[in-house]
Design a protein around this nucleic acid. Structure first.
Length: 473
RNA sequence: GGCGCCAUCGUCUAAGGGUUAGGACGGAGCCCUCUCAAGGCUCUAAUAGGGGUUCGAAUCCCCUUGGCGCUACCA
């Protein structure tokens, strides 16, 4: 049974690198018929906040991928403590009664690896039990088997064969003196208990994996298969951080910027993974069908943003591609949400609404454009841009547009075709270039000099509004 | 400092011993055209450096350099 998990710690918003890890886990599960587990790794009570939990769910829900099972580490403390004690009982760990922080200095500066305080490490079980029973605080440390000269090895699905001598692994903590498990312990105890078969996570955990394998062994559990992902970094090479790089690191930024969830998922997938056949715009199903660890590369990916352009241009491009190529029905809910959010009344006639969206979406980049550039299609008032004013100021343009309005009004039939016929006939009759009326119509109808074909505008905006706007020039 | 990982156009990437080093985004130009997009075409730009191995290296090995990660009673 294939089981994967995404285990964020709620100490901030949902980071785009975390989002990508979630996506890759989800893809692997869906691709192979496995189970996707969401687990909140909230053992750090000092730093966890409800706000962070909310924002992680916000981001995850927006991605619209879902998960099958949900757990919270804070509900499983007893399991973690029992695991630590089991490891202690088996002799794979020992109590360290050194007061917190006292050994730090030498440990960091001795140029080597913290091999544990020899006295603590060698303490007899009797003395250890006695001092613990007496209420003396202690931390439980893993007794790394250094004397055997053994190396921990594993085969990472992305990075290949990995090996590290136990001489280079420090005696890390499992249980803190306040009785709370450390990340390493909680994570492994849960992974073992939840029968996680594949751990797919950021490369920042690659070297932690050696410790984790030691824990799995001490727990008597077979280590899962590991797959580490290259990290997402900023153009300056640094890891993405909110303090340094701002909102570009939070997925909700992209939601708020008018991205289609799938377009953003598509973008994130292309960072560090490739279908290897030059395709870039892919549907969710297409990605599920071809996703594999072989397509993941090993070097970190730069998210390309600058101060002036805070969003990666490729993400924008992908969004525009999906916006214009998806079946209209699929983007309607998102468009409707944006318009409603911006205070517009949604057209009663849903099919007409869809046809408007279909006409304008080809030149929009984000959903926000529907509320911005799209205003003339959903509201009666809109600004006339200077470039549009120039079209209206062209010789004879205004009287001709008013004449066109009169002719359209006199004709009970109103369609893209009849509007075009009237416009062209009028131009020929008056000896002016059709372009004057075409560009003038666009300017009058939308206040913009650029946009969809003028004829498409007639039907999109509708008879009454068209006549009113042409008359009003 | 120790240990580990990584290194192809500005960015995302393909090519896992033999290619004019391919695609995409971005930028520039042309075509199309009622405008702007879209679309089509063209151009721009890369194997970090040095040694090997080989008939032949972006690809395999070593060194250097650079970047990143871990080295907490953070995750």
């Amino acid at each position: 049974m294939l089981r994967v998990r995404f285990a964020p710690s709620p100490t901030g918003y949902l980071h785009i690198g975390s989002a990508r890890t979630f996506i890759f886990n989800w893809l692997y599960a869906r691709r192979n018929g496995g189970t996707m587990i969401l687990r909140l790794d909230d053992t750090d009570v000092e730093r966890n906040t409800q706000q962070s939990i909310d924002s992680i769910f916000d981001g995850l829900n927006w991605l619209d991928l879902g998960w099958d099972e949900f757990y919270r580490q804070s509900d499983r403390l007893e399991l973690h403590r029992a695991a630590a004690n089991r490891i202690l009982e088996k002799g794979y760990a020992y109590r360290d009664f050194t007061p917190a922080g006292t050994a730090t200095e030498e440990r960091v500066h001795d140029g080597g690896v913290f091999a544990g305080d020899p006295e603590q490490r060698a303490m007899s079980k009797e003395e250890s039990d006695r001092r613990a029973a007496a209420g003396e605080p202690f931390v439980i440390r893993f007794r790394v088997p250094r004397d055997t000269g053994r190396a921990i090895v594993f085969k990472d699905s992305v990075y290949g064969d990995q090996s590290k001598s136990c001489d280079d692994i420090e005696d890390f903590a499992l249980l803190r003196s306040n009785g709370m498990p450390t990340y390493h312990l909680a994570s492994c105890a849960d992974d073992a208990d939840l029968r996680i078969s594949h751990i797919i996570r950021g490369q920042d955990h690659l070297t932690n994996t050696f410790k984790h394998i030691l824990i799995f062994e001490a727990l008597g559990a077979a280590p899962p298969q590991f797959a580490h992902l290259p990290l997402l970094i900023a153009p300056d090479g640094a890891k993405l951080s909110k303090r340094k790089h701002g909102p570009v690191v939070s997925v909700t930024t992209y939601r708020d910027a008018g991205f289609l969830p799938h377009a953003y998922v598509n973008f994130l997938c292309l960072l560090g993974w490739s279908p290897k056949d030059n395709r870039e715009q892919l549907t969710r199903q297409e990605i599920v069908d071809i996703f594999s660890f072989e397509g993941i590369n090993r070097s970190n990916s730069v998210v390309n943003f600058t101060e002036e352009d805070p969003i990666d241009p490729k993400a924008l491009w992908l969004n525009s591609q999906h916006l214009r190529s998806l079946p209209v029905a699929e983007i309607m809910p998102a468009v409707e949400a944006v318009l409603t959010g911006a205070g517009y009344a949604i057209p009663e006639d849903k099919s007409h609404f869809a046809s408007i969206v279909d006409v304008i979406r080809a030149r929009y980049t984000t959903l926000l454009d529907f509320a911005g550039k799209g205003r003339p299609f959903f509201a009666d008032t809109f600004a006339i841009e200077p470039s549009a004013m120039e079209k209206l100021d062209a010789p004879n343009a205004r009287p001709l547009l008013r004449e066109l309005a009169a002719r359209l009004e006199a004709d009970p039939e109103f369609s893209e075709a009849t509007a075009e016929a009237h416009l062209r006939a009028l131009a020929t009759e008056k000896g002016v270039k059709a372009g004057v009326l075409i560009n003038g119509s666009r300017a009058a109808l939308t206040g913009q000099a650029v946009g969809p074909s003028a004829f498409a505008l007639f039907s999109a905006i509708g008879r009454d509004r068209v006549i009113a706007r042409l008359k009003a020039v």
